[in-house]
Computed example of a mutant assay.
Amino acid sequence: MEGGVKKVAKKEKEPFHVIHKVPSGDGPYVRAKHAQLIQKDPETAIILFWKAINAGDRVDSALKDMAVVMKQLDRTEEAIEAVKSFRGLCPKQAQESLDNILIDLYKKCGKVDEQIMLLKHKLRMIYLGEAFNGKPTKTARSHGKKFQVSVKQEIARILGNLAWAYMQKGNYIASEVVYRKAQMIDPDTNKACNLCHCLMKQGRYEEAHAVLQEVWQYKLPGFDDLKSRNRVEELLLELQESGMPLPSLMPNLPEDLTFDDDDFVEVLERVMNEWAPARSRRLPIFEQISQLRDQMAR
Rank of each mutant, 00 (worst) to 15 (best):
Leu123Pro: 00
Leu128Glu: 13
His143Ala: 14
Leu119Trp: 08
Lys135Glu: 15
Leu118Ala: 01
Lys122Phe: 02
Tyr127Gly: 08
Lys135Asn: 15
Val151Lys: 11
Gly129His: 07
His121Cys: 08
Met117Pro: 06
Met117Tyr: 09
Arg124Gly: 11
Thr137Cys: 07
His143Lys: 13
Leu128Gln: 09
Gly129Tyr: 06
Lys138Met: 05
Thr139Met: 07
Ala140Pro: 10
Met125Asp: 14
Lys120Leu: 02
Glu130Arg: 04
Ser142Pro: 07
Ala140Ser: 13
Gly129Phe: 07
Lys146Thr: 11
Leu119Arg: 04
Arg141Met: 14
Ala131Tyr: 13
Lys145Asp: 09
Lys135Tyr: 11
Ile155Gln: 00
Glu130Phe: 02
Gly129Pro: 08
Ala131Met: 15
Lys152Ala: 08
His121Pro: 02
Leu128Asp: 10
Ser150Phe: 03
Gly134Asn: 01
Glu130Cys: 02
Val149Met: 14
Gly129Met: 04
Lys120Thr: 04
His143Cys: 13
Lys152Val: 14
Thr139Tyr: 03
Val149Arg: 13
Phe147Thr: 04
Gln153Pro: 04
Lys145Met: 10
Gln153Phe: 06
Val149Lys: 12
His121Asp: 03
Gln148Ser: 10
Leu118Arg: 05
Gln148Ala: 12
Glu154Leu: 02
Lys146Cys: 03
Lys135Met: 15
Lys122Arg: 13
Gly129Arg: 05
Arg124Trp: 13
Gly129Cys: 05
Gly144Met: 05
